[in-house]
């Protein structure tokens, strides 16, 4: 029982106001933490720096094929969480000319004894290539339902646009399969 009673009323009022103001700052900074999420996504989108690509079909407007330039596109697959589903590209890599559409297929089989829904999440390295790899069709655009033991061949149609930076001669497209049965929503 000390301190407070002895403060001058004016000091006490000023202190309380100050404390309330700082509480508002605290609340604002808590909000700022969440605001960082859209800021981060916008920044990554705007600068194309995350190797992330949009999960929707790109514009497939035909462009001039550059037959003199060859780029190797490699495919990498992972199943999240150490599940032993089969999931692999039918071809480890292909040589492409920028501006031309190519179709590749991926094979996946649900080796578990129950149905599940999987979602593939793509990523591209180097990150500079992310916005230049255009996909018109991809199994990653939708959640993929699998019956127990079901196997599928899944196509990806893509093209590298000729604007790809000239020093990039090798692009890696990676897919990670996640089990989203728990949170499976209808395809959008």
């Amino acid at each position: 029982m000390s301190g407070r009673e002895q403060q001058q009323p004016s000091v006490r009022r000023a202190s309380n106001m100050h404390a309330v103001r700082l509480l508002f700052v605290t609340a604002a900074m808590f909000g700022f933490g969440f605001a960082l999420v859209p800021m981060y996504n916008m920044l990554c989108d705007a600068l194309g720096i995350n190797g992330k690509i949009e999960l929707k079909a790109a514009d497939a407007a035909p462009v001039d094929v550059d037959p003199n330039r060859t780029v190797t596109v490699e495919f990498v697959t992972t199943v999240n969480g150490g599940r032993n589903w089969e999931f692999h590209p039918d071809q480890p890599s292909i040589e492409v000319h920028p501006g031309k559409l190519y179709t590749v297929t991926f094979f996946a089989r649900n080796t578990e004894d129950h149905d599940l829904v999987a979602q593939a999440v793509p990523n591209i390295a180097p990150w500079e290539a992310a916005k230049h790899l255009k996909k018109t069709e991809c199994f990653c655009f939708n959640q993929q339902p699998f019956k127990a033991g079901e196997a599928k061949d899944m196509p990806v149609v893509f093209m590298l646009d000729p604007e790809l930076p000239p020093d990039v001669d090798r692009v890696t497209l990676s897919y990670t399969f996640f089990d989203v049965s728990d949170i499976a929503m209808k395809p959008n």
């Binding site: 933490g33 995350n50 999240n80 979602q119």
Partner: peptide, 20 residues
């Protein structure tokens, strides 16, 4: 609660956690 701030399967990004 089924959000996907950092879960790649739902469109989130684990690297974003490191930034925050």
């Amino acid at each position: 609660f089924g959000t996907s701030f950092f879960t790649a399967a739902g469109g989130g990004d684990p690297v974003m956690f490191q930034h925050i």
